[in-house]
Structure formats: C-alpha cells, structure tokens
Design a protein around this nucleic acid. Structure first.
Length: 422
RNA sequence: GCGCCCUUCGUCUAUCGGUUAGGACGACAGCCUUUCACGUUGUAAAGACGGGUUCGACUCCCGUAGGGCGCGCCA
C-alpha cells in the first residue's frame, strides 16, 4: 500500500516535471526512526525510485514549536488535561450509546483557576487544535470536489503531554515550509485533509493540491490490512518477483489502463494520469501479480538480465525465458543445459531411448538437428506424437515440460545428450 | 452508531441519456510445435436489487443490499 502511494507520487512528479519529496512522518516517539527509514529506503530503492529530496519530521522540531506557539497566540490551540485512558473510556461509552466518539471540548470550559489548580497538582496539558466547525472544501485531483464539515470531528491533539508533536501539525508546517504543491495519498487520509487544510490556513499558508487514491482490498474484496505482512515489498522481493512487475502492477491496478508488464518506467510515466485512477477500491490478487511477473520475464531482452544471470548467453536466455515464472527458475534450465540432471527413463521406454541414442547425428548441431534426429527416430521406431517426444524430453531434461527441445538440444550438445540417453 | 466514498464480464476498467455495452488479464477453443510450455488467432462472459424522472437510463434522483475508509496523546 505504501509502496503504491510512493510509486504514484513518483510517477506524478516525473510526469509533471516536479520533485518527489519523501518525508518520514516519524513523530511517533515509540518508533525507531533509523530502522523505519532504512526499511522504506530499501523498498523504494529496490523499486528503482529515487526521491529528489528526503526529509524527517523529527528533525524539524523547532519549526513545529514555532507553529504551535503561533496557534496558541491565535487562540487555536487549547490545553486539555484528560488522561489518555479516560479519553479512551469516554469514546467507548459514546460508541456504546450510539453516539459519534467525538471530543466534547470540555477542556475549553475550564476556567483559569481550574487550570492553575490542575497544574498545581502537577498535571501537564496536551493541546488540541480548535476546529472552525465549517465546511472545508477542496478539489481532489482523483475524487473531484470534496467537502467535509469539521463540526463532526474531534479537535485534533497536536501537542502531546510530553511536548512532542503529532503527525498532523508537522505535516501542515512542513507542507508550507517545503512549498509542497501536491499531496497524493490514500483515501484513509481524506478526513485528515480537512483538518490539515484548517491548520494550514490558521498558520497563514496555502494548502497544497490534494489527491486521494482508493485503497486496495484482498482478492476476496475484504480489507487488506490484516495480511499486509505477506504483501510487503520485502516479501515480494524475497519471492523473486521482478521490481518492474511489482511497479507495473501497483501503477496500473485500479486504473483504466490495461495491466501489462513494463520493462522500465518510461511507459508508465508516459501514460500516467491521476484521472485514470478509479475511486472504487481495487482488488489486489497475488496470482495476478505472479502472472504479470511471468509475462514480463517472457518479453525481457537479454541485456536486461545478463548481469543478474552471471553471463548467460543470449541464445540460452531466448530459449528459456518463455518458461520462467521468476528469474530464479532460470537456474533449473541452466542446469538442464550446462550441468547434470537426472534423466528419467521408464522401463518400457528403455529400448526406444537406446535406439534414439544410436541415431543421434554427429556434430556440429544447430536448430535443425532436433528435427533431423526425431524424424530418423520416428522412422526407426514407429513412434510418433507424444509417445515419441515425451520420453526424449524426460531423458534429456529429466522433466515433462520445458522450453522447445529444438532450441534446447544444440545447447545441451552431443556429449551430454548421449550421456543422458544412455 | 455517525460521517465520507464506492458498486459494469471471474478480475482491472471504457461509456460523460440513444452503443450489437468496448478493451485488457484470466478461462475456454483453434493454430503453431508430429510433446508440455512460449507464441498466435478466436469464443464465451457484465450494468447489485427496487422504485422513480425521461420518448428513451449503465448513465440523473431516491431507497435497499453489499463493500471500502474515517471517527487515537498512531501515522
């Protein structure tokens, strides 16, 4: 999901000639920033995405403090003293009674004396942003005109009791400071957007243009979040999927473009348009991704894989690529060509295989050798069709399926072929 | 519970009131290969349901059902 958002942002930047700013929203003190940042960098790096700029919210603490002070001075930030567990209980009670779990602004009614009394007890406040309770509107690049009434929302906590800032404030401040033009994110953020627009405007800034893409569901149409682990970029990489297959799928799923493999980003950038993204959630099907990966491999030219395959020649690659699901599968076919395999000869085929071995033509071999040979075998043994070819395939490759034998045989060579047939 | 959004072949989608409802993936079939695959050609396959509005509705409106998201001192 996050990778899809990153890809969409990157494609949009490339398409429009803008810059892709990767921002680590690492304001949660419980989170290890370094590990988090390394993981994301590894993911998008593997996908071939290079951010034009990287920023960490946690390193801009001073700027966020200035913004908080400004909001306090404007009377938009007010102190609250409820404990977190108390708020939690209250929300559950509201929900149980069929009420929206919205903060009731009780702290706003506190008198100066009550506040000093609480502070005297050693209570420290957290701070909430006082929403305007108005209809916030924006033109979403994917969803069209949007309007959210902030009267139905809780005043968001912007400053924790221990004085760090929640994502919402740094996000608005950094958007202003970095002159962010476009924010492209998942639709789980649409409500945040209304709040962030209010905060941005309270800070005197101009909100960026927003675009919210739909989220993905599983192949069954149900939410994806619970199984996110197995669908991580790291897991896909380990499964041996091609980065461009993952990128093609992420960029094309849920769009009006056909889902097809792109060997590099050029075509994806060329055809990219936020207007092509559907507002309905799309189903993420792992089987579809795997199939796309296979299709990508089948069309990949030799030079695209040469370096990763340790000097496999172009003829060999062209012979085997049509039978690959992942690049790692090529090892098995390379073994068939260059190393040893276990020939399979069932007892009733023994005489047939022996006869075939005697008819093996002399070298040099080329693309016509297979035909010459099998025609001779056919004439000598009376076998044809599957009964003729399957035993030969099993003996020569040890497998009942694989690349065309006409192209495989010359690569195996007479010596190894004879060896396997006997 | 409340709010926002969504619903066309199995899947991703086109259609911006009048179409034989189009494409892609998959499925199936033919061809190629005297084999499995690859490739190639073709076929089947859809407007969630119920009401309106209209000469005419997949398209606009209302309702129902189903689904997604949100409602944190998470991001």
């Amino acid at each position: 999901g996050n990778a899809r958002t990153a890809i969409l942002n990157w494609l949009f930047a490339k398409k429009t000639g803008g810059q892709f700013v990767l921002r680590y929203d690492d304001t949660d003190t419980a989170r290890s920033t370094d590990a988090f940042a390394r993981a994301i960098a590894a993911d998008i790096g593997w996908l071939g995405i290079v951010p034009d700029r990287v920023e960490y919210q946690s390193r801009r603490f001073a700027r966020h403090g200035e913004a908080a002070a400004k909001l306090k001075a404007a009377g938009r930030l007010y102190p609250c003293y409820e404990a977190a567990d108390e708020l939690d209980r209250r929300r559950k009670r509201q929900l149980a009674r069929g009420l929206p779990p919205v903060y009731d602004r009780a702290a706003l009614k506190l008198s100066a004396e009550e506040r000093t009394a609480l502070e005297a007890q050693g209570r420290k406040p957290h701070w909430r942003f006082k929403l305007d309770h108005r209809k916030v509107e924006w033109n979403d690049l994917i969803r069209g005109p949007q309007h959210i009434d902030t009267a139905s929302l809780s005043d968001p906590v912007l400053v924790r009791e221990e004085e760090s800032y929640l994502y919402t404030l740094p996000s608005a401040v950094d958007d202003i400071d970095f002159a962010i033009s476009h924010v492209i994110r998942g639709e789980d953020h649409v409500v945040n957007t209304a709040v962030q627009i209010e905060i941005t405007e309270a800070l005197g800034g101009v909100p960026p243009v927003y675009a919210h893409h739909s989220l993905l569901t599983g192949a069954d149409g149900k939410g994806l979040s619970k199984r996110l682990g197995s669908l991580s970029i790291a897991a896909m990489r380990e499964a041996g999927l091609e980065a461009m297959a993952v990128a093609s799928h992420a960029a094309l799923l849920g769009t009006s473009e056909s889902i097809h493999p792109c060997a590099d980003y050029r075509e994806l950038i060329e055809g990219f348009d936020l207007a092509k993204l559907s507002r309905a959630p799309a189903r993420f099907d792992e089987a579809e991704l795997k199939h796309l990966n296979a299709r990508l491999l089948h069309m990949l030219p030799h030079e695209a894989v040469r370096d990763r395959l340790g000097g496999v020649s172009e003829v060999v690659w062209n012979a085997i690529r049509g039978n690959l699901e992942t690049l790692a599968d090529s090892k098995a076919w390379l073994d068939v060509i260059t190393n040893g395999i276990n020939p399979v000869v069932v007892p009733e085929d023994r005489d047939f295989i022996a006869a075939a071995a005697r008819l093996l033509p002399p070298e040099p071999w080329d693309a016509t050798t297979w035909k010459t040979w099998t025609e001779a075998v056919k004439a000598a043994t009376d076998r044809k069709g599957k009964a003729l070819f399957m035993p030969l395939r099993l003996a020569l490759t040890g497998l009942d399926h694989g690349p065309e034998l006409a192209s495989l045989l010359p690569l195996i060579g007479r010596h190894k072929a004879l060896d396997r047939l006997s």
